[in-house]
């Protein structure tokens, strides 16, 4: 039996962030008209839908190829706002899903939006479609739909991977106005290169607060900003302490052994010659105070715990037999 203590600060830090978010949600509940800075990609939603309405072509929405998680739910939240406007103008929509769970939630969400707008007769069950769970089969299916239906506006928001550029370039080929945003930082440059408007980083999560101005969502956004200040403060502390400590000469250095199948990772301090080869041996990153706070020292004794075992169970049947 072994335990690996990865430090208490991770949990403490997470709880602090949770406190900031919940405290600000509570604080914001009574307030109205709180300020959220302008996000160009979200301002363009109405223009995009208006264009699709004028051209009589559909609006395409893709919530990425990820599973049903916070990212896809956030994408569906934004799509619900898009659908709300589309329902008012009677603009046809297409929502393509690569995940069956996302598809089920998307179908319910879009139907609820039409119902809430009093336009349930305009709701087309087939407007929300499950295409395929295979990445490139999905890419081929959506690209084909963009070409066939000549979509006038496309929204690619969620978890995208290699297929992001296929979507964006296909939509560009049919002259669609494109609004995109991905939580995958590697894909964001592709969207920036190919799309008209891009939600970068946490703008994706700020979108529903911006669109609805719900106090809960705006409060949560303020909580995130507080958390960012803490992160900046910690980076500053790390910068100061590291700069000071890593110029100090040391005679002991920390060694973290790699975890193997049999032995857990443990740390030990080994002596070093402080002036090896006539040069000072300076503290490394792993020897600094801040590093130790987040990576506590783990000894062999700490990770090995002996405890009694249950007796081996009696074999129930004797099958087969040797020669």
């Amino acid at each position: 039996m072994q335990y690996l203590d990865t430090g208490k600060y991770h949990v403490l830090f997470t709880l602090l962030l949770v406190f900031f978010i919940l405290f600000n949600i509570r604080r914001a509940k009574g307030k109205k008209d709180m300020f959220v800075r302008r996000i160009p990609g979200l301002n363009a939603i109405d223009d995009a839908i208006g264009r699709a309405t004028e051209m009589g072509r559909p609006v395409l929405m893709v919530p990425g190829i990820g599973e049903l998680n916070a990212i896809s739910v956030q994408a569906l939240n934004i799509f619900a706002q898009v659908t709300k406007t589309a329902a008012q103008f009677g603009t046809p929509i297409r929502l393509c899903c690569a995940n069956a769970a996302v598809f089920a939630v998307a179908q319910e969400t879009i139907r609820d939006v039409y119902q809430a707008q009093g336009q349930i007769e305009r709701y087309d069950v087939d407007s929300v479609r499950f295409i395929s769970e295979r990445q490139f089969a999905f890419a081929a299916g959506v690209s084909g739909m963009i070409h066939r239906e000549q979509c006038a506006a496309t929204f690619f928001l969620g978890e995208f991977f290699a297929e992001s550029l296929i979507f964006a370039e296909t939509a560009n080929a049919v002259g669609a106005i494109q609004i995109a945003g991905s939580t995958q930082t590697v894909q964001t440059p592709f969207f920036i290169a190919a799309c008209d408007y891009v939600l970068i980083g946490d703008e994706f999560y700020a979108a529903s607060a911006f669109l609805t101005r719900e106090p809960v969502l705006v409060g949560s956004l303020i909580g995130q900003d507080w958390a960012k200040f803490v992160v900046v403060f910690m980076i500053f502390c790390g910068f100061i302490t590291n700069s000071m400590e890593r110029h100090q000469v040391t005679d002991m250095k920390r060694v973290d052994n790699d975890a193997t199948a049999d032995v857990e990772a443990f740390s030990e301090m080994v002596p070093v010659e402080p002036w090896a080869n006539g040069k000072p041996v300076l503290k490394r990153r792993a020897d600094t105070w801040l590093f130790r706070q987040f990576n506590p020292f783990i000894t062999k004794e700490q990770v090995t715990v002996d405890r009694p075992l249950e007796p081996e169970p009696e074999p129930t049947t004797a099958t087969g037999g040797g020669s």
């Binding site: 997470t14 962030l17 949770v18 978010i21 919940l22 949600i25 916070a70 990212i71 739910v73 956030q74 569906l76 939240n77 934004i78 799509f79 619900a80 706002q81 659908t83 709300k84 939630v105 969400t109 609820d112 939006v113 809430a116 939580t183 930082t185 980083g201 946490d202 994706f204 999560y205 700020a206 529903s208 609805t212 719900e214 809960v216 969502l217 949560s220 956004l221 909580g223 995130q224 958390a227 960012k228 992160v231």
Partner: peptide
Amino acid sequence: GVGLGALAMGLRIWLGLERGGVSV
């Protein structure tokens, strides 16, 4: 930023505070 956003979103969904599109 993305991590903090995901944390906030996850909290809102978990505690039933989300009042956006999914629960219009």
